[in-house]
Simulated assay, not measured.
Amino acid sequence: MTSEAPSEATTPEKSPDSRVFNGFRGSLIGVAEALPGISGGTVALIVGVFERLIGAASQLTTAIRLLVTGQGWRRTVAEVKQVDWGLLIPLMIGMVVGLLLSARLLAPLVTDHTQYAYALFFGLVMASLWIPYSGSGQRWSGANYGVALVFAGLAFWLTSLSVAGAADNPLVVIGSGAIAVTALILPGLSGSFLLLALGMYEPTMDALNNRDLAYIGTFALGMLIGLAVAVKTLRWLLEKYHHMTLVVLTGVMAGALRALWPWQGPEDDRSLHAPTTDVPQTVGLMVLGFVIVTVVLVVAHRKENPARGRGRHARTPSRR
C-alpha cells in the first residue's frame, strides 16, 4: 500500500487551507503526545492522517538509510521526492507547537501536584489498555495471558528501579527519545507514558520549557534513531506477528502502570503506598482520565469503522 491513494481521495494537500488544517491536526497530535495515556497515534487516527503519516515517515527513513549506507545520491533524492511533504511539514510544525504549549501547562502540574497528576494519568493509561488488548481482532488464549503476565511483571520490576539522575546521562536521553517516538506507530501506546515509566517525563518537559537546546538536541537524535530503527522494526513485527506483538505491548503497558500509582515514594525510592491522602479527589481524577480516553476511543472507532470494517482496529496498513 502506498501513501498516494489516500491523498487522491481527499482534498488537495497543496492548498494553503490544507496546509493550515494539517498544522492544526499536528497540534492536536502534539498535545496528545504530552498527555500520558492519550496516544498521538490514536489522535492521528481520529483526524485521518495515521496511515499517511506512517507512510511518509517510512519513506523518509528509507531515504536516510540510502544516504547513510552510500547507495547513491540519485536513489536518495528519488525517495525524498516520494515523501508527502505537503502533509509532513505542516504536521510536524503543528506537533511542535502543540507539544510546547502542553509542556508549559503540564510540567507545573506534574511537579506541584504529583499525586493528582499521576491519578489522572493512571486513568488515561488504564483505559488505553483496551487498544492493544483488542487490537488484533483475535481471541486471547491462555498462553497469551501467560506471556502478557510475564512482560507485565518485567515492566513492573523495571519501573520500580530508581532513575534519579538519569537525565544527566546522554545515552539515557537518546534511548528515551528512541523509545518515545515508537508510540506514533501504534495507536494506544503513549510516548509520554513511556517517558513517565522511564522517569524522563519531567526532565523532558523542563527542557522544552527552558529551551535546553543540548538536551533537546540529544533527545531529537534519539528520536531520529528510533524513527530509523525501532519504528521500522515495530512496524515489521506488527505486520508479521501482529497478535503476539500486541499481547506483549498490553502486558508491558499494564505492568508499567506502577510508575503512575498516585501514592508512592520519592523518585529515589519509588515504593508503593496504600491510598491514604485525598482519596476521593484522587480516585475522582482516575475516573475522569478513564472517561476521557474512553470517549476518544469511541470517536476513533466510529471514524475508523466505516473505512476499515469490523474487527480492524488500530492496525498498520494491510498487506492485502
Rank of each mutant, 00 (worst) to 15 (best):
M1C: 11
S7I: 15
S7C: 12
K14H: 14
R19T: 00
V20F: 15
N22R: 13
R25Y: 03
G26E: 05
S27Q: 06
L35E: 05
P36G: 02
T42L: 14
L45M: 13
L45Q: 01
V47N: 08
E51N: 11
I54D: 05
G55A: 15
G55D: 11
A57V: 14
L60Q: 04
R65M: 08
L66Y: 12
L67Y: 09
T69A: 05
G72M: 10
E79A: 14
K81T: 05
V83Q: 11
W85P: 02
P90H: 08
L91M: 14
I93M: 11
G98K: 06
R104V: 04
P108A: 03
L109E: 03
V110N: 08
T111C: 01
D112A: 07
T114V: 08
L120I: 09
L129R: 07
Y133Q: 03
G135Q: 05
G137T: 08
Q138C: 01
Q138G: 05
R139M: 09
F151Q: 03
A152T: 06
L154G: 10
S160K: 08
S160Q: 10
S162T: 14
A167G: 11
A167I: 02
P170E: 11
V172N: 13
V173C: 04
V173A: 05
G175D: 04
I179W: 10
A180W: 07
A183Y: 08
L184P: 00
L186Y: 13
P187E: 00
G188W: 05
L194I: 15
L195I: 07
L198R: 04
P203K: 09
M205C: 07
D206T: 14
A214H: 13
Y215E: 08
I216N: 07
A220M: 03
T233C: 11
H242N: 14
H242K: 09
H242R: 12
H243F: 09
M244W: 15
V248K: 12
T250S: 14
V252L: 15
G255V: 05
R258S: 01
R258V: 05
A259S: 07
W261Q: 03
W261T: 02
P262H: 04
S271E: 13
A274R: 02
T277L: 09
M286G: 06
G289W: 01
V293M: 06
T294H: 00
H301F: 14
H301T: 10
E304H: 08
H313Q: 09
S318F: 13
